[in-house]
Amino acid sequence: MLGLSEPDLAIALEIPERVIRLQPDDASVQKKLGSLADLFDRLLELNPDAATAARHMKNIRIRVLANRTLLEAVKDNESEKALRYLKSISGGQSG
């Protein structure tokens, strides 16, 4: 997902790699992966280029998210805040 290897995804989401690999149906894994997918889908609505959306998810720091990336917001369990931000910019508000 997002061009991340399984070990990189585990590090990015602060989920042990063995849990992702051996227990992919674990509730905490599913919650974070679901949040990640929701945010990525929203990014694709704003810009349908998957590579650009992935780069934005991993690299662009957002002021209203305390200068964190969207991926960092998911890791910190603040995906709802990140989703609100994306909804606000899709509606024309500045973020």
Rank of each mutant, 00 (worst) to 15 (best):
R68W: 00
F40T: 10
T69G: 09
R42W: 11
V29M: 11
L4Y: 13
E17A: 15
P16G: 02
A73W: 06
S94F: 04
M1D: 05
R18Y: 02
N59P: 00
N77D: 15
D8T: 13
E6H: 02
S79W: 11
G34S: 13
V29K: 11
K31W: 06
S28C: 02
A66S: 07
S88T: 04
L46I: 15
K32H: 04
K31T: 15
L83A: 14
S5D: 03
L4D: 06
P7S: 12
V19I: 15
A37C: 04
F40W: 11
L70G: 06
D25Q: 10
P48G: 14
L70M: 12
D8H: 13
S90L: 05
P7T: 06
A51E: 07
L86N: 10
S28F: 09
K87F: 05
L86F: 09
A10R: 09
L2D: 04
D25G: 07
A27D: 04
S28V: 13
R63S: 02
A27G: 00
G91F: 08
I15D: 06
D25S: 10
N59C: 10
R63C: 00
V74K: 12
R68T: 05
A37H: 12
R63H: 01
L70F: 14
L2C: 03
L9H: 08
G91T: 01
A82M: 11
L83F: 15
Q23G: 01
Q30E: 10
I89N: 02
E45L: 15
L13M: 14
I15Y: 07
Q93C: 02
N59K: 12
N59V: 05
P24L: 09
D76E: 09
E6P: 00
E6Q: 12
S90W: 02
L71G: 12
P48T: 07
E80C: 04
T69N: 08
I62T: 00
N67P: 00
R63V: 03
L46M: 15
T69V: 09
P24E: 03
K31V: 06
S79P: 08
G3N: 04
A10L: 07
T69H: 04
G91P: 00
I11P: 01
S35L: 05
I62P: 00
L70N: 05
D8W: 01
R61Q: 08
G92Y: 05
D26V: 01
P24G: 10
I11G: 01
V29A: 06
P16R: 12
V64A: 03
E14S: 15
S88G: 01
Q30F: 00
Q23N: 10
F40C: 12
L71T: 14
L44C: 14
L39P: 13
R18E: 07
D76V: 04
A10W: 09
G34N: 08
L83S: 13
S35T: 14
N67K: 01
N67A: 00
E45F: 09
I62H: 13
M1N: 08
R61W: 01
A82V: 14
D76Y: 10
K31P: 00
K75P: 03
I15E: 06
E14P: 01
M57V: 08
Q23R: 15
M1L: 11
P16V: 02
L22F: 08
L36Q: 12
I20M: 11
A73Q: 02
S88Y: 02
K81R: 12
P16H: 08
